[in-house]
Amino acid sequence: MSHHRVEARNLHFSYPDGQAAIQDISFTILHGEAVGIIGANGAGKSTLLMLLMGILFPDSGEIIVGDTRLTPKTLPMIRERLGMVFQDPDDQLFMTTVRDDVAFGPRNYHLDEQEVASRVREALAQVGILHLRDRAPFKLSGGEKRAAAIATVLSMKPDILIMDEPTSSLDPKSRRMVMELLKSFEHTKIITSHDLDMVLETCQRFLVIKEGSVAADGPAGEILKNPQLLHSCGLEMPLSLQKCPICGDQTKNFKSG
């Protein structure tokens, strides 16, 4: 199953104003892996995702999805296999009904209307908002919007899911819902976030980014147990691993994975 593999080799990228955003990043993500990319604000997480999706092209280095190198020519093919959920669902939802939004991708690949309809139904059912299909996206709550945005990507049946801050600005219940959803996917997953508790629950492997480079890459347990590393990267231990400030108990013991 090498075709679900994502590989980055010596990526470098600078913005037009000269700011170097990505400096020599390399990693390989295997089929079925769930990888959390963590790092402080401005560490380069979003830029890295843009590079993976081919929205930006690296100054040097290469990205390989499956056995294909990402170039402007192979872009359509690669994008069909990668599904990206944006941080702000409003960027992703632009039609007047949820149904049309979810159908947008499949229609662009010129599937016939019947297939489109069944994919829409399937995707909406998967994220649990089938009943909202005729609503206007701007009328949804934050959690519902997020679910709809995820459905717009699922309807394209990607092999690899890429999510930028999937739980940002959600209330606890919606956050929980999105987390359960993420755990239920069997896709290869790449998730960026500052919500370390969420990443801890959904990903086995962590990639820590600091100032545009990989500061650490390894199993979740090892990285999260290293407070110095986390601190130097502008992060904190997940609350679920910290001592409870009220009862003083460390109730939850992390089983290293």
Binding site: M50, M53, I55, P76, R79, E80, L82, G83, M84, F86, D88, D91, Q92, F94, F104, G105, N108, Y109, T152, V153, M156
Partner: peptide, 12 residues
Amino acid sequence: RVYAAMCLRGFK
């Protein structure tokens, strides 16, 4: 961003 989101879903 929106344009990027559209392109990622095959918009041509």
